[in-house]
Design a protein around this nucleic acid. Structure first.
Lengths: 144, 144
DNA sequence: AGTTAAACGAGATTCAATCTCAATTAAATT
DNA sequence: AATTTAATTGAGATTGAATCTCGTTTAACT
C-alpha cells in the first residue's frame, strides 16, 4: 500500500522532470508513516531522530511539493503552524478541533460537498478545494 | 446603526472592567467603516492616514478584543495574514475565495450549518464556531 | 565517465504577531 | 477636584514559522 504510493510519488517526480532524491523519499515516507497531523518541524525532528536527517529547508520544500501534487493535505488549526497529513485513503478529511486540548477528529460529509459545489456554481466559481473546520469543546474539555 | 453598535462595544468594555479608550473606539470605528476583509496592518495604516494614529500593538490587541467579544470575525485566506470583518449584520459569513486574484465572495448556507451541528453532536463536541472556505477560480480568472 | 541542471544544507532573512517595560491615562476613591 | 490605582498605550525588541541565498553536491542524461 505505502510502497505503491511511494512508486506513484517517484513516477510523478520523473514525469515532472524532478529528481528522485533520498531526502524527498525520506520526507514522503515520514509523512505517510502516521495518521497524525504534524507540522514541518515535527517532521524534521522525527527524521533527525531516525538518523535520516534532512534540512529544515528541504522539509519545507518537499512538503510543498507533496501538497502541489496532492499527496498530502494541509490543515490550519489557527495556532500559526500548518499541519500535514497524508492522503493515502481517498476519503475527504474535514476536521473537528477541540479549542482547549487541540484534539482533532476527522469526518466527511457528502451532503455538504454537494451543497458546496452548488454554491460555487451559483457564483460562477470553479471549485478547486475547500476548508471546513469545526471548532468546539470535546467531551473531555467541556466544562473545564 | 453603527452608533448603536459602538454603544454596545462600550457597554461590553465597561461590564468587563476594561477601559473605554480613544484608541479602542478608533479601531472599532475603523473596522466597522467598511465591509472589506482587512488585515491588522491595513487597519493600522487607515487610522494613520485619517490622523487617528494608533500603534500597531494596540491595533492587534484591540482586534483580539473585538474577536473575543464577537464584534468581528477573522478569516484566513492562507496567505499568512488574518483578516477581519465586522459582524454587524448577524448573517453568517462563509467565503468563496479566488485562488488567483484573491477576490472574496460571501455566502451562507443553513443546510450546511444544520449538518455541521449534527456532525459535532455525533462526536460529542460542543460546537463554538466553524470555518468554511471554498477555494476556486472566479469567472474572470478561470482559464488564465 | 563527463556534463549539466536541479537539489541540498547552513544560515540569513522576512514578516506577522507577540512581548516588554516605562510612561500615560481612565476611572474608582476620597 | 485632587489623589490613587490599575489598566492601557507606544516604541521598539523579540519570536517563530516560513522563505530565501548561495556555494556545494548529486541525480540523471549523454
Amino acid at each position: 500500500m505505502a510502497d505503491k504510493n511511494l512508486q506513484k510519488f517517484k513516477d510523478v517526480l520523473r514525469s515532472e522532470h524532478l529528481k528522485v532524491t533520498p531526502q524527498r523519499l525520506a520526507v514522503f515516507e515520514e509523512v505517510c508513516s502516521t495518521d497524525d497531523h504534524r507540522d514541518a518541524d515535527d517532521i524534521y525532528l522525527s527524521l533527525k531522530q531516525r538518523e535520516k536527517a534532512v534540512s529544515r529547508a528541504t522539509v519545507y520544500r518537499t512538503v510543498d511539493l507533496l501538497l502541489k501534487y496532492n499527496f498530502v493535505s494541509r490543515i490550519d488549526i489557527e495556532d500559526g503552524k500548518w499541519r500535514y497529513e497524508h492522503w493515502l485513503d481517498c476519503t475527504r478529511h474535514d476536521h473537528l478541533i477541540c479549542v482547549r486540548c487541540g484534539n482533532i477528529v476527522e469526518f466527511s460529509d457528502k451532503n455538504i460537498q454537494i451543497r458546496e459545489k452548488r454554491i460555487a456554481k451559483s457564483f460562477d466559481y470553479t471549485l478547486v478545494r475547500h476548508v471546513l473546520n469545526l471548532f468546539g469543546y470535546c467531551s473531555d474539555c467541556r466544562g473545564k
